[in-house]
Structure formats: C-alpha cells, structure tokens
Design a protein around this nucleic acid. Structure first.
Lengths: 200, 200
DNA sequence: GCATTATTTTAATCGGCATTAAAATTTATT
DNA sequence: AATAAATTTTAATGCCGATTAAAATAATGC
C-alpha cells in the first residue's frame, strides 16, 4: 500500500482521524464515543471532523475499510512468500497480528455493521467474505500439499479468524504483551492444523 | 439453575425481554437497536420495558449477566463430569455452544461494557475474569494429567474463548449450521491442545 | 504583501430516543 | 362482583449528540 504522493496532507490527517476513532471505539465502545471524544483525541473540535468525513456513518465505514486493508495487506504479503499452505497461514497470522498491535495502530473490530447504510454494509460484507474465502483457499491448498490436516475449511476458518478478531477485546496496548502476542499467538492458532497428528 | 418457583411470571417475562434484547443487539448492532425495536419483538410498547428494567443501561447489564450465566453453567456441568483436562475442555465447549445456538436463545456478545456504569462494569468484568481463570485452571489440570500439551494457558485460553465468543458474529440461527456447529466446532477448537503432537 | 485555498471554530439547529407520569386495561383474590 | 394488584399504553418531556452554516484563522502560491 504505497500511498499516492498526491493528497498526502489531507489523506494523512484523515488517517489520523480514523485511527483515533478506532481507538475510541475499542476503548469506550461505540455508543460510548461521541465525535467530540474522537476530536478531543486529536486536539480538534467535533465539527472539524466533518472536513474529513461526511458523517459518523461514513467514519465507521472507513474504519471498517481500514481494518479490511490491514487484513488484506497481511494476507497478500504472506502469499507472496510462496510457502506451503500451513506456513502461509502462520505467516499471515504473524503479519496480521503485527499490524494490529503495532504501529499501524488500533483497528476497530466493532459490531456496527448492521447500522451502516446498505451500500456501505454490502461493501464491508463483501470484503469480509472475500477475506474469508481467501483464507479458506489457503487452507485448501495446505490440505492438498499435505501440510494441513484434513478439516472443514469453513469452520476452521471461522475458528481462527474468531480468535484473531477477538484480540482487541483483551489486548490493550501494553508493549510487553504485544511482543509475546506476535511471537506466540500465531503458533497457538494454527497448532490444530498440523498434518501429522496423534489421534485423540 | 433451577429457578425459584416464586416470581415466575415476572421473571419469565423479564427473561423474554433480555432474550429479545440480545437478539436485537446481535442482529442490528447496539446503536442500531432502540428500546422500541426490542419491545416490538415482544408485541409491546417501549415504555412497557421499564416495568422490567430500570433503564437501557440495566438492560445491557442484565444481558451480560445472562451471557455469563450461560458460560458458567456450561463449565460447571462439564467439570462435574470429572473427566481429564482435555475432555473437560471439549465437553465444556460442546455444552456452551449448545446453549448459545440452542433453546437458550441468543446471547449478546457486544462491545458495550465500557458504557456500563462503574458498578455494573466492574461486576461484568469480574465475572468474565473469573470465567477465564477457571478455564485456565482446567487447562493447567490437563497439562498436569498429561492430556494437554504444554502451553501458555493465558494465551491459549484467550485464543479458544475468542473463537467461541465470535460465533454470534457469523452464525445466524439456521438449524443446519447449528447442528454442525455443535458437533464439529468443539473438536476444531481443541485440536491444538492434544498432548502427543508431531513437531512442526 | 495579496489573493486564494485549506483548515478549524463558533454558534445554532434539529431529531431521535430514552425516560417519566398518569391513565387505562388486564389479571388475580376473596 | 368488587377490590386490589399487576401490566401495558398514551402522551409528554428533555437531553444529548450529530449535523450545518457562516465566520475566523492558518497555510500556500504568486
């Protein structure tokens, strides 16, 4: 995602706005954060936000797009490394977690999709489904190349993505856990995928 | 959870209210559901809800308590069966998922804890931590009795509970998936825990 | 320095939704 | 049937927070 050199000033501020919003949503909950809260975090006035977004609905929408971007980015990068299925999954998890807890800043994982306007909702859901499908494809590839045990890719995908998406609920930015998270969590999440397993 | 034979009428209606609220929160998002929505689902008027709850904040609080109850119930039952660590975890997952997708009705997993009033927030967080701790204790027991591989119980707990809590985000009540969910998901979630594993 | 554009603020407006009080209706008790 | 208690509705009220328009300030190009 090398960014267009054009528009940088505006785009950069807008991105700070989204980051601040995501942070608030994570920390104070959605209904608990007013635009004033978000603005305050940037040393601005609530009205100033309207220079960057059309309204609150769009703000939420853009937060979701940003979250989708982070996920897509991580997956693309992992796929590019051309590893086997299992290793690709693990690498993707490392990268995605890294972006989530790292400098890419807070990514809103909130439950407000239903209150988006139809056009935006469809788009967000489309991206979400696309991401899931790609994840499942990697699982299938892993099963084919023998690196991943035979499993229901839909369910398994939901399981792993669930753990991943839940992270913001319990991780709140301490550097200590961030490091361990990035180091150990991917392994935990894909342990259940290893091809050669003892029977239970 | 045998319920007090006293108060049944009132308590039963109140429980229907909570169920309806949880359903709305899951389907329409929190900010997207007004008390009128919840009431409509019961064929009531918004004002009527105030006969059962003091205000919206309390409604949310009670939804959380109800969710906590479901989890605690499932865990207690699993523990009572006196299996080894691994089997207890798996049994707990079966039971909890069964309650989540079954007749116990929708359980709100929402992100509005921060907007609860302090006293209620503390209480909900206390219950949540308690549940996590008990889960981790079972993991530890499993490691001790050799049924679970050596792992970081904190992280592993977060991983599994994340998958579990995420279910309402993608499961929307079709009986078909409900059955498969209950049957196959527990195994998927605890596959990574088996003691004798091949090295990756 | 001047004019134009970008950014933020001040100061209102506006509507939706939670909340309440009192009235109406339904249910229970004897 | 009569009275009391429980449950729900009608009809306001009030407030918070999103939104807007116009003014003010800051940045930029010439």
């Amino acid at each position: 995602m090398a960014e267009n050199p054009v528009d940088t000033r505006f785009e950069l501020q807008r991105d700070r706005v989204l980051k601040a919003a995501a942070h608030c949503f994570n920390e104070k909950g959605f209904s608990g954060t007013s635009l004033k809260d978000v603005a305050a975090l940037l040393g601005l006035t609530d009205a100033a936000l309207y220079y960057y977004v059309k309204n609150k609905e769009e703000l939420v929408y853009l937060c979701y797009l940003r979250a989708a971007d982070v996920g897509r980015e991580a997956m693309q990068q992992a796929v590019n490394e051309e590893l086997n299925g299992f290793a690709t999954i693990k690498r993707y998890l490392e990268l995605h977690i890294g972006l989530m807890v790292g400098d890419h800043g807070p990514v809103a994982i909130l439950s407000e999709i239903p209150s988006l306007k139809p056009r935006h909702r469809e788009e967000v859901l489309r991206l979400s489904r696309q991401h899931s499908r790609r994840f499942e494809e990697i699982l299938e590839r892993g099963i084919a190349d023998g690196s991943i045990c035979d499993c229901d890719v839909r369910m398994t995908g939901n399981a792993i993505m669930g753990s991943l998406n839940w992270i913001p609920k319990w991780f709140h930015g301490d550097a200590k856990t961030a490091a361990r998270l990035q180091r150990e969590f991917p392994d935990i999440l894909c342990r259940g995928l290893v091809a050669e397993r003892a029977e239970q």
